[in-house]
Design a protein around this nucleic acid. Structure first.
Length: 470
RNA sequence: CGUGGGGUAGAGCAGCCUGGUAGCUCGUUUGGCUCAUAACCAAAAGGUCGUAGGUUCAAAUCCUACCCCCACAACCA
């Protein structure tokens, strides 16, 4: 039994769970359930990123302690993940004491590649952030939000020397030893890698207090990178535990917006620690509403839980795993969602189950289900390549084929004509087909798969409540 | 002259690498069927493949130029 480790991106706790997070979790969950179906032992990590000034200030604004603030947020995320039917095995919070301790240890181990340097640039005291030279020029040196001139500020930061690892990272990406999907993102990352400067990994304590202290320097606090990215291994117990059973991860799922950090900074850290790079990094797209980015100001934000509540969890998973492209940006509209539910789940699959169950029940079919199923190669190859929406399409073709076959073979005519043997052979074969399709749906639609199994187990009776009621 | 992706039937997409009758899903129309959640099956209509040139016996596919849309753009996760 092989061991496989799958990770999700840890969301920043300054906001509430949204549909993009759901996408990340669902993909990783399908991956994990697929490997489990093949008999592997799987660990699926999830977690939350809880440090940083933004959170600190937000907590202050709401008049609560930062820790209390993130505790609440984390609870809401945990509840969210649970509602999505995601079976995670490990949960890591960047404010966990153990995580912080491990982070400091990781920092120490990276010290050969870390140096202290002065940073200077334009800073807006209103925004509390640095702006790029380009932004400075575009705004003629005045912050448009605060109508204040940018100040020249100089501070000391620790830097991680990316250049120490550039060749090795490039080689790993080019050779697919660290596979980046989809391919056009891989190209993008290779280009970005060449331009990547050393990355600043700390802030003076005067600027950032809510974070992990830099070991051996009281005046500096870790900036996000080492703190957050290291979660993937601290949750496994690194460095004090041997993680070689689980690391390198089989697959790391990330949004396209944060791929660059995972494709450049994270590998640099791993190489600095002498650890292997993850086998695959899957970058998924964003979910759009009517072709537009969801945003609060436009007011087109789709609440994931609202979507789940409308037709149930499996319908949600169905839509986001099949009609949302695994890699590219995709659209969500209620209209499309309704249509997918009615035409596909209810009419194709739900109705197929109903038809076969009724035929079997009316004719008192003594159905013997197969001992085991052999997964078609096309399916496994798509699943192994993380092409989940395509694998889903493949299964659906089988479902539609079965509906065709029923029409072609007209089992009700066989019954009318008293051709019992033929009828039994025909129905059994069709049900075998359905159960195989159902088996292939295991990673995608856990609730439905169980229901369908139950219908054809023992005495067959059509479900009293349709699988996907309209 | 920033980088990347894209423009193919009413909608959403595949095909382009490795040129050779333009395809899938939904929608529309018509027909069939009755096992089924007014579900299912079949057939038809619908496209000068962004524009203009070029290469070729032959271009959605290769080359050149241009137009349009979108995403990202050094620490805003």
């Amino acid at each position: 039994m092989a061991k496989k480790y799958i990770t999700t991106a840890i969301p920043y706790m300054n906001g509430n769970p949204h549909i993009g997070h759901a996408m990340d979790y669902c993909l990783a969950d399908v991956c994990s359930r697929y490997y489990k179906m093949l008999g592997d032992e799987v660990r699926l990590q999830a977690g939350t990123d809880e440090h940083g000034n933004k959170i600190f200030l937000k907590a202050k604004d709401s008049g609560v302690d930062a820790q209390v603030f993130v505790d609440e947020k984390t609870d809401s995320f945990k509840a969210f993940i649970k509602k999505l039917g995601v079976e995670y095995t490990d949960f890591v919070r960047t404010t966990d004491e153990l995580h912080m301790k491990r982070c400091q240890e990781i920092w120490k181990r990276l010290e050969d590649h870390i140096y202290l340097a002065k940073y200077n640039g334009w800073y807006c005291t209103g925004c509390e952030r640095y702006v790029t030279d380009k932004e400075y020029e575009e705004n003629n040196g005045v912050c448009p939000d605060h109508q204040k001139p940018y100040e020249k500020l100089e501070e000391e930061n620790y830097y991680l020397r990316i250049s120490d690892f550039r060749d090795e990272i490039r080689e790993a990406i080019e050779s697919d030893k660290m596979l980046i999907l989809p391919d056009y993102r891989k190209k993008e990352m290779l280009k970005l890698l060449e331009e990547s400067p050393d990355v600043s990994i700390s802030r003076p304590i005067s600027q950032l207090t809510w974070g992990v202290p830099v070991p051996g320097d009281d005046s500096q606090v870790m900036y996000v990178w080492i703190d957050a990215l290291s979660n993937y291994i601290t949750v496994l117990g690194y460095p004090e535990e041997d993680i070689s059973d689980w690391w390198p991860a089989r697959a790391q799922f990330v949004g396209k917006d944060i791929l660059r950090f995972h494709a450049i900074i994270w590998p640099a850290m791993l190489l600095g620690l002498g650890l292997p790079l993850p086998k695959a990094m899957i970058s998924h797209g964003m979910i759009l509403a009517n072709g537009q980015k969801m945003s609060k100001s436009i007011g087109n934000v789709v609440e994931p839980m609202e979507v789940v509540e409308k037709y149930g969890l499996d319908a949600f998973r169905y839509y986001f795993l099949r009609h949302v492209d695994t890699f590219a940006d995709s659209d969500f509209t209620w209209e499309k969602y309704d249509s997918a539910y009615n035409n596909e789940l209810a009419n194709d699959l739900g109705n197929l189950v109903q038809r076969l169950a009724t035929l079997a029940s009316k004719n008192r079919l003594a159905y013997q289900k197969p001992e085991s199923f052999v997964l078609p190669e096309e399916y496994t190859s798509l699943m192994n390549d993380f092409e989940y929406s395509k694998a889903f399409d493949f299964v659906w073709e089988k479902v539609q084929d079965l509906n065709k076959k029923i029409d072609d073979e007209k089992p009700w005519m066989l019954a009318k004509n008293g051709e019992t043997e033929k009828l039994e052979e025909c129905l059994s074969r069709l049900i075998d087909g359905l159960l195989l399709a159902n088996y292939m749906l295991t990673p995608f639609l856990p609730e439905t798969v169980q229901k369908i199994k139950n219908v054809f187990d023992g005495l067959i009776e059509p479900p009293k409540i349709p699988l996907f009621p309209k």
